[in-house]
Design a protein around this nucleic acid. Structure first.
Lengths: 221, 221
DNA sequence: GCGTTAAGTGGACTATGGTCCGATTCTGGG
DNA sequence: CCCAGAATCGGACCATAGTCCACTTAACGC
């Protein structure tokens, strides 16, 4: 980590794609080089092995070596495909994540467009927390293995951040969208929420309520 | 991390104690077993080696092995003394940290007692950020190597948290002190602030102002 | 079919934090 | 001064994430 980080290149968009055994995975688009058959096969193997191990032992206990062995591939293949541990784990919840992001952008009010910015902001936290609940284990582990700085730079974080920045801009000049977006997002980190739920024993509804209060008061000035 | 964490026992309170060459380190108190001479000598060696390496290469690049070699002790000694990497790094800023904590508890208003709770809360963020600035590198690294969950459980975090919880209780029933304390603390994490400063290029004054706005609006409800 | 080529592969290798335990050294008492 | 016991030491050892590159193999034009 001392020398240049140099994010590894991920040649294919590791889509998780349910598992319905259709042989034709992707329609051939434009100039994109097709994924080789053995690569696709290995990707499927890796994903299902990872899924099984995570389900059995919990995300925190699953090492890359164990996944490689279980999937019957070399360790190098894991990293070539998914970049790093966080990437591999994330590909397990791509579907769910995209669905939530769609809700934000195209869904019904108060989360989606149609509601005033204030309402959309206030609704964001609870919705995010709800989504977090199902995959808390996995998301906590992803955040842990990424570390704060890479986490904040990740496309996923940026998407949520941009969403809030845009909405905050609409509520007027009394907020600092760039900073307040981060400040509203920070307490939603899986590690923080996990601590509140597990150690302090607080129910997710109460966390959601407290977050909404904070957000509402910020935007109501 | 999978099996029981089992925090290692740290037999002596690794006090950093400036370096004024007084031979009598600690007055012999009560029934406490005295620290052995070789142990004290090694502790001093380790701390100054760590300090030098951190100053030269930055906290992120300093590995435990390198410190052990530079200090002329075995790696085991490092861990016995300081528990883990985070503990060793933290002992480098014990003095500064205690000074700030004193300010909170016994200092002048608006940070210390004497000012109304609202003012003390609003003043907390900017003061913390100021303190963070001097040791951003070190604190970022401590947080990174601890991981969110251990970070939230650490005595240092708990102290700040309790401080805010107490003050939030005073502002009335419209806040949820246990949760809002965490929510105000989360955006002050060194990783978050570092990202805002480095990547987004925002000045610390603006971050402080945004935090104070958020806090003020929360308590003014 | 067949050769060319680039994508893909796997496992040895490195760096790192952290653990363990036999060997060593300090300390207090005789 | 010397001894016994306990605190301390140190470096071999482990698991882990991530890198590297010589070798393999699928794809595609002929």
């Amino acid at each position: 980590m001392a020398p240049t980080p140099d994010l590894p290149v991920i040649p294919f968009p590791s889509s998780v794609s349910g598992g319905a055994g259709s042989t034709a995975e992707l329609p051939v688009l434009g100039g994109e080089p097709r994924e080789r058959a053995d690569a696709a096969r290995n990707r499927r193997r890796i994903l299902s092995a990872t899924e099984a191990l995570v389900a059995r032992d919990g995300a925190a206990c699953v090492s890359m070596d164990r996944i490689a062995v279980a999937a019957g591939v070399g360790k190098g293949t894991l990293f070539r495909r998914f970049g790093d541990r966080a990437g591999l784990l994330r590909s397990l919840l791509n579907d769910r994540e995209s669905a939530f992001q769609d809700e934000l952008i195209r869904g019904a009010p108060p989360l989606g467009p149609g509601a005033p910015a204030r309402e959309r902001i206030v609704a964001f936290g609870p919705a995010y927390l709800l989504q977090l609940e199902d995959f808390a284990d996995l998301i906590t582990e992803i955040e842990r293995s990424l570390g704060t700085s890479s986490q904040l730079a990740s496309p996923v974080y940026q998407l949520y951040r941009t969403h809030l920045v845009v909405l905050l801009r609409e509520v007027g000049p009394s907020v600092d969208p760039d900073l307040h977006a981060d400040m509203l997002l920070a307490p939603l980190a899986a590690g923080v929420v996990g601590h509140q739920r597990t150690v302090l024993g607080l129910p997710v509804e109460r966390i959601a309520a407290a977050w909404s209060t904070l957000a509402a008061r910020l935007v109501d000035g």
